[in-house]
């Protein structure tokens, strides 16, 4: 059994108190302790200090309810408002450009136009004109107002539900708009459905291995994905994640 001097013992004191020493070292420490009055005193005061810390720990209160409420309110406020400056800017851009774009239908548009439309919608209180959670109802409402056939996907992206529909203008074309909302931790998604051959978002990168000509890109922090349907172009703005996006895009084709 190795003999310990005072320095050895002191370096092991915490582990000795916590019973974390192996058997042999623990016996060596105990043997030194039995023989050394100074280290017995050190151990005594060491134990007093640790006991005092334990008492202080148990007496120190956790977060009061007022702080809990303040933290939650602050987080909710930031969760709700982080996009407001962007939305305000987007609304300005959309308003300023609306007159020009309305007179100039385009076969290809910047994906940013979809992203701005998405952000501008999030800043509105009346995000949808036709509130519904039923895809068939939304499809009928949109079909009666648009001059092209469209299929509204029956299954929303994982973790989301349909909130409603309205019409909007992209690249001078009237297109369908559908809003999907998730739980409080998720930002809403915007799905645009435009007629084939019109307002195709350009500059997006193809997703290798994906079907239906799926292309994705990032517009100043807003993810945009576009894919070809049978009679329409679908553009999704918002962060849904690639697996959910692939599942969502495939159902329109298979319906």
């Amino acid at each position: 059994m190795p003999k310990l001097d005072c320095d050895d013992f002191l370096s092991l004191l915490d582990a000795f108190e916590d019973n974390e020493l192996d058997g042999v070292t623990s016996l060596s420490a105990q043997e030194h302790l039995d023989a050394c009055a100074a280290c017995r005193a050190r151990r005594f005061w060491h134990a007093e200090a640790r006991a005092s810390l334990r008492r202080l720990r148990s007496e120190t209160p956790g977060a009061p309810e007022t702080l809990r409420a303040r933290a939650q309110t602050g987080i909710r406020a930031r969760r709700r408002h982080w996009w407001r400056p962007l939305a305000a800017a987007a609304a300005l851009v959309v308003a300023a450009g609306a007159g020009y774009l309305a007179t100039r239908p385009a076969a290809e548009v910047e994906p940013m136009e979809y992203a701005l439309n998405h952000l501008a919608t999030l800043g509105r209180t009346d995000r949808v004109k036709f509130p519904t959670t039923n895809a068939a109802e939304a499809e009928a409402w949109l079909g009666a107002r648009l001059g092209f056939p469209l299929n509204v996907p029956r299954q929303p992206p994982a973790g989301y539900r349909l909130a409603g529909a309205r019409l909007c203008s992209v690249g001078g074309f009237k297109v369908a708009y559908l809003l999907f909302e998730g739980d409080a931790s998720k930002q809403p998604l915007s799905l645009f459905i435009a007629p084939s051959g019109a307002c195709q978002p350009g500059g997006l990168a193809p997703v290798p291995g994906a079907r239906f000509a799926l292309r994705t890109g990032d517009c100043d922090g807003t993810p945009v994905a576009a894919w070809e349907g049978r009679d329409a172009i679908y553009v999704l703005a918002g962060d849904v994640g690639l697996p959910a996006l692939l599942a969502f895009t495939s159902q329109e084709q298979e319906s």
């Binding site: 120190t60 209160p61 956790g62 977060a63 009061p64 809990r68 933290a71 939650q72 987080i75 931790s185």
Partner: peptide, 19 residues
């Protein structure tokens, strides 16, 4: 993330009180 913060609020507050 919000729930992770919530879970550690007590410990954060105890340290903050001592600081």
């Amino acid at each position: 993330m919000a729930s992770a913060i919530e879970e550690r609020l007590d410990a954060l507050h105890r340290v903050a009180l001592r600081l």
